[in-house]
Write a protein that binds this DNA or RNA. Sequence first.
DNA 1: GTGAAAGCGCTAACAT
DNA 2: ATGTTAGCGCTTTCAC
Lengths: 346, 346
Amino acid sequence: MRHELPTLEDVARVAGVSRATVSRVVNGVRSVDPALQDVVRAAIERTGYAPNRAARSLVTRRAETVALVVSGAGDSTEAAQNAFTARVFADPFFGRVVSGVMGFLRPRSVHPVLMFAESDASRQEVLGYLRHGNADGALVVSTYAHDPLPALLAEARLPAVFFARPAGQLPVTFVDFAHRDGARLAAGQLLARGCRRVATVAGPLDIAAGQERLAGFREGMERGGQPCVPVAEGGFTLDSGARAMHRLLREHPGIDGVFAANDLMAQGVCQVLREQGRRIPQDVAVVGFDDSSVAVTCRPRLTTVRQPVEEMGAEMARLLQERIEGTRTEPTSTIFDPELVVRDSA
Amino acid sequence: MRHELPTLEDVARVAGVSRATVSRVVNGVRSVDPALQDVVRAAIERTGYAPNRAARSLVTRRAETVALVVSGAGDSTEAAQNAFTARVFADPFFGRVVSGVMGFLRPRSVHPVLMFAESDASRQEVLGYLRHGNADGALVVSTYAHDPLPALLAEARLPAVFFARPAGQLPVTFVDFAHRDGARLAAGQLLARGCRRVATVAGPLDIAAGQERLAGFREGMERGGQPCVPVAEGGFTLDSGARAMHRLLREHPGIDGVFAANDLMAQGVCQVLREQGRRIPQDVAVVGFDDSSVAVTCRPRLTTVRQPVEEMGAEMARLLQERIEGTRTEPTSTIFDPELVVRDSA
DNA sequence: GTGAAAGCGCTAACAT
DNA sequence: ATGTTAGCGCTTTCAC
């Protein structure tokens, strides 16, 4: 049924050279006469040849494929898995990571294989997949703090790069963000506007990013002479942000500035504030975190701390490539710096 | 560096049989002495053998991999690509499809390769990828009406299954939803509540789903004796829903019921309504569409038309498998039926 | 029912 | 600089 595909042999015949020469041209080995190269390339063009990945993989022991692993907690029931997936994809954050990753991978024509790891069985599956060389390495986005996957991967010495430093001082490669510095920037902006009664909707405090952003914000406020900041914890969702804001308002009606640990929660904060008839930023200034898509769709548009998620995704892919190629073997990490994006909410 | 993996040969040696026999056991060919089967299986266990996909692919001409293609409009600039990705992933819808797809694929240990097709170049890439057998088929989720990919895939006679019927009467396999019937259900619910001044926030009318839902809703209202329904078009986003509701309220302040063509817009509708001090459902009843995650996080929880997206994703994967295995060669389609989920908003 | 052997398309020594 | 050759690990006739 499928049309027979041209092989190296076919190209070689058309070009009047040996298979090896064609292979060299295809793989960009330089030691081929430029004139011959042209002949070969013409033959490739004419035949519509493209290398057979399976055959190549078999001999090179490279899959030319990486696993894109979404890791998290949960059991194996279908309901739990669906809930897990829904939560992951509902966060615009994950899409930005994927976008960055694909941006790096696409020009190199390596495609990510999507895998979930939310149960013991699925973690073993990921491990097996990599160990058997079906993928050359893994890009891992963890959705919770004590994910066992990083340790498993490190122990098996499989090439992997993580989004955010995994818990437990593992000798692994990762990209991360200077959350503390970013949160300090947010504090600075609120202070500069002259806010005197500032509160914060923190992220989940069992996640490093949540802790760091809170710590950084407190530091910033303390330096500005406001050591006591009311805190309400949220879960990085719009809804949890709204609920946290309600709690804050109930106990501290005089609030004139809020830092939300991500944009989604900031959006929830804004909704509550507007419902209560408070003007943003005149009555209450709001600063978000991430600079995700909601930052510009939110009304008013959010002043926020930009986290360059796409670039971080691309860097993950780059670091993984280095590990796979063996260019660099010891664990590395790249920490990205924040940037304050001033819009309308503060 | 990587630990040497056991091969068929190794298992054969341990079991004291030939490679061929081991291969037969691995592939479940029945014509092997049950006693020998046990011996072989024990040897597999002991050696920790797993088949090498590349070697197998090379001879079977099967990749054991499918492409999961997110298709849409856009150009090749990085900004456009990022925006595209962000939009796709921001919609909880896509995650549900992926969840369903993975649910079917995982037990069969086939993993989806993620691909984007938003430009001519990337569409050709997808075509080449499939044509060269790097994936056995494609699961395609289109994000806009006149996507050229379905036609390209059909013309190349490559195995593919689409989410929603592609434009242009193509002879392709797809899964879809009875949008009309679903929207009629929504109308029925509003009428049953006794709503007399009903309006609708429609989806984008250049998309079949948008048109169908509007048509179905009108039909339903007409049958209930309310042929004239004010319409405001939205874009399936929260924001567009909110804006549409504002327009509706300005021109028809007496509205007592609203059908929004998806839950995200319904959420926007609810926000505006609450801002304006209208109680839901007492003053204005709201019905959404999809039964996505926001339906339960929205305040009040949404009464909505359930679209079984996960099941639809699983069915896509099943249909693709049939096509790949050649069990079924002519185009098929599965249309899913709606179900009204009554919660608090209507 | 089981084994021997050929060969899938490619790369990488090794010759030349 | 180019060609010859030997596999990579697997499935699959074809004999037995």
